[in-house]
Write a protein that binds this DNA or RNA. Sequence first.
DNA 1: GTCAAAGGGTCCGGGAACAGACCTTTGATG
DNA 2: CATCAAAGGTCTGTTCCCGGACCCTTTGAC
Lengths: 244, 244
Amino acid sequence: MTAPQPDVGRLPEAVLRPATANVFETTVEQLATAIRLGVFVDGEQLPPERELSERLGVSRNTLRDAIAALRDSGLVTTRRGRGGGTVVTYVTPEPGSVATAVPVRRGAALADALDFRRIVEPGAAWLAARQELAGDQRAWLAESAAEVWATVDTPGHRIADSRFHLAVATLSGSPMVIESVTRAQAALGELLAAIPVLPRNITHSCEQHDAVVDAVLRGDAEAARAAMEEHCDATSALLRGLLG
Amino acid sequence: MTAPQPDVGRLPEAVLRPATANVFETTVEQLATAIRLGVFVDGEQLPPERELSERLGVSRNTLRDAIAALRDSGLVTTRRGRGGGTVVTYVTPEPGSVATAVPVRRGAALADALDFRRIVEPGAAWLAARQELAGDQRAWLAESAAEVWATVDTPGHRIADSRFHLAVATLSGSPMVIESVTRAQAALGELLAAIPVLPRNITHSCEQHDAVVDAVLRGDAEAARAAMEEHCDATSALLRGLLG
DNA sequence: GTCAAAGGGTCCGGGAACAGACCTTTGATG
DNA sequence: CATCAAAGGTCTGTTCCCGGACCCTTTGAC
């Protein structure tokens, strides 16, 4: 009576994932990611600790430990007293340290993240195009794309780029989608930062952003998705080329 | 000097999500979901506690508490001694309790889950079609679809259906995609179970499964995605109709 | 019939997280 | 200048969770 397992596509192995890392580390990671992706930009203040801890579903103690870790990494500084608080002090490091400094994600994880992004970002664009967007939302999207153009050749470019992608995701209106895009961006962030800034690539990338914006604002979901797919494929090709 | 916040699409609110629930509850939820989605079918044994706890990244104590909770809910039973273990005792409840017994997800959460699924499941099918599948994987996929046909009009139908979807996701080969599909299925599972079993709907649904399988086995990614999109749209329409 | 192996069942000490109260600093305001 | 409020900083008791050692039950193998 040897087990009658199909043994080929074992669902349990595929589905049961190791759930939780340590809460403290998770919090550090989440805040660091938010900063590196430009959710909070340089000079911006984080919300007060009590508020932030509640939003993150974490005790204030743990949050404070996490902030202390960020402080040690030089990502934020803290001032006490009224009007004090924790402000972001982060400027994108110079690219060019092409995937040497950063612990390169193992091949499988990289492919995973790229595949995931290729699915989820176009999906977000598609969904966003189907929403009825308010005037300020439309303006926000356009500004986000414009900001990417505006920061070409500045250190802020990387951040403007991820802010644009997060803006698209946000306008999809679906929390699960937003979270997915965030995770994809976070997983690739280090690597995207390593893409050499050839003017040709960047221009092309910005044009694709504009195509996405255009389609979303027109409410053309299929076009929005197609444009974002192209964009993902382009950066994906660059990255794969870079890393063999 | 009122704050110069755009205030429209505040990224922090969108991105910073409450991270962790309680480990114990997470574990219970994960196992219960796995069982309800048919990752473990009726009569099947769970892995030994020591092994399972390691895979879930949870202490054996906590895992045991979780299993005890499942036992209290009647989802599993446990026998001691060599050859003993915890076996699943779960048969899909009769549908027909249309979204009355189950705590109906709030409207927004429902829409979120449907949107997410509509993005992620077709994406999984698309990716799966691009993989080079081994012979046993191809067979597994076909069997999964066949099983759905075979269980029409039996209580096992619901489970066969989600097993099919999880199989597609698994064949995509991307852990992040697998996880996303699992979450989508879990979020909708209760509701999908409430869809009345009109023969016409079910037949149609199975035909769409077959279309997906066909396209995946042919390696036609676009067709696979399109087929899965149709499928998601169909069930989505049914659900929305059911709940106003 | 005996025994060893493979399971589940129990217990305990230590560390992580939490909740909440309280202290200190500092800018704004009357 | 005195006061206040809004922040960060500190402390404490409690709960949750982990890791690991150990016990109990059953069954297949010799």
